[in-house]
Design a protein around this nucleic acid. Structure first.
Lengths: 128, 128
DNA sequence: TCACTAATGCAAATGCGTTTGCATTTGCAT
DNA sequence: ATGCAAATGCAAACGCATTTGCATTAGTGA
């Protein structure tokens, strides 16, 4: 029987309000804003459950490592600002999948990662 | 002073003949076909040197982890066959980078990973 | 309210890629 | 041929994400 605990609820709330994928550490920190008494092991235990439930997906970012994101958002890709280290979700997909798949191959999934500087960081350093 | 050892030469040869990115373990195994006495620590030491020299690039594949590939090949992306676990290099790029970069953002680099089944594996299971 | 057990906290343990200390081997200049 | 420092082999150590054992806490049905 599954119980409704405040730490579990906090973790779900964190994802409900997140605007991008989160690392386990992120979930811990954001979760603690809601429930001071929250442990990393608990975070992992719940992340695992939520992934098993299909609520979350675990993705491996080439530069940031393992991140978790909700599965109820449509196909998208990620932009990593190397200045502030934030991850932005990019709506849609500008990849021609069939165009990049060799003859005889079948592409089931794909991931695209962009790296650069976000608007916020560009402004800061823009001067004037 | 840098010396020319057979293990170092073997590692360079491995990359000279590789047709895709390799894991450290791959380099060890392929290198041993050339020099039986080759150690993983040596592989790592040389990989590090070659990356520092700019000969190799280290990339983090979301499904396969850290891989090393030559830097003297033109822009391309990777296809991972989930059936045989092989990595194929895809010539060119079918991503509309500017199209996927939000206003105000600047994209410096990007990576694309495709997952699916390669031609060889498709044939095997295709029956006739 | 009470008992039962799921869930948590904590700390130790794991797995895996990678690094490092040190004794030994081996290019290479002399 | 000889000597010195670079390179290697080996095994232990690391860093980091993640898991786990166990005592304690706290939902929840009765």
């Amino acid at each position: 029987m599954t119980r409704k605990t405040c730490q579990r609820e906090a973790i779900r709330q964190v994802f409900a309000h997140a605007r991008g994928p989160l690392s386990a550490e992120d979930v811990l920190n954001l979760g603690r804003e809601r429930v001071e008494r929250l442990n990393l092991a608990t975070v992992y235990r719940n992340l695992r459950i939520m992934v098993a439930e299909g609520i979350l997906r675990r993705l491996n970012h080439p530069e940031l490592g393992p991140l978790y994101e909700r599965t109820d958002i449509s196909h998208h890709h990620h932009f990593h600002c190397r200045r502030c280290d934030r991850i932005y979700e990019l709506a849609g997909c500008a990849l021609d999948v069939s165009g990049s798949t060799p003859a005889g191959f079948r592409t089931d999934e794909h991931e695209v990662f962009l790296y650069g500087v976000c608007a916020a960081c560009s402004c800061e350093s823009a001067g004037s």
